[in-house]
């Protein structure tokens, strides 16, 4: 091979691999990423059932039911709206009522959220960042104080950590 051909072969190979990678990345970004939603987002603007979403909020007090079929049902709330969640699988050790969690999955046609992953951080003073940001935006969270009552509403019976 001449010098020029060698160089062309090299550049061609590189362009090919990079193009392949770009194609794969674009393809999977369009199908496999999950958007973060609060319960209010989901209630007001329901996503299509195929869209993967991350639902973040607090586990409502008294809402956790463990069924005989090893499925766990609970409700996730941002103190304005609540979304029922069904999850079959292993809950993190720190999953408890009042704790901030993130559930990942899809919204079923009956408006029940089918979670395939539930994340609760391994630290009792932790709130998922997305949940805190979301609560802050709507004045339900203050740095150093945790959950605060929505203005003009009932006090929230939740102990969001973070103090």
């Amino acid at each position: 091979m001449t010098r020029k051909q060698k160089r062309l072969a090299g550049i061609g190979g590189m362009v090919g691999v990079v193009a392949l990678a770009v194609g794969l990345v674009l393809q999977s970004l369009s199908t496999s990423i999950a958007f973060f939603n609060s319960p209010t987002d989901i209630v007001s603007n329901a996503p299509v059932p195929t869209q993967r979403i991350r639902l973040g909020g607090l586990v409502e007090q008294g809402s956790v039911e463990r069924g005989a079929d090893s499925k766990v049902r609970f409700r996730v709330t941002d103190s304005v709206e609540t979304v029922p969640v069904v999850y079959a699988g292993l809950l993190p050790d720190l999953f408890r009522e009042g704790q901030g969690i993130i559930a990942e999955g899809t919204l079923g046609p009956d408006r029940v959220f089918l979670a395939d992953t539930v994340l609760a951080k391994h630290d009792e003073t932790y709130m998922p960042k997305e949940v805190v940001d979301d609560l802050k935006k709507r004045g339900l969270w203050e740095d150093g104080k945790g959950m605060v009552a929505p203005k003009g509403g009932e006090p929230v019976a939740m102990t969001g950590a973070g103090s």
Partner: peptide, 18 residues
Amino acid sequence: GAKISVGPPFFNLTFGPL
């Protein structure tokens, strides 16, 4: 401002084939 998460499916689909 959109919040998304990129989980295992993304990496399995991109990293794996490469």
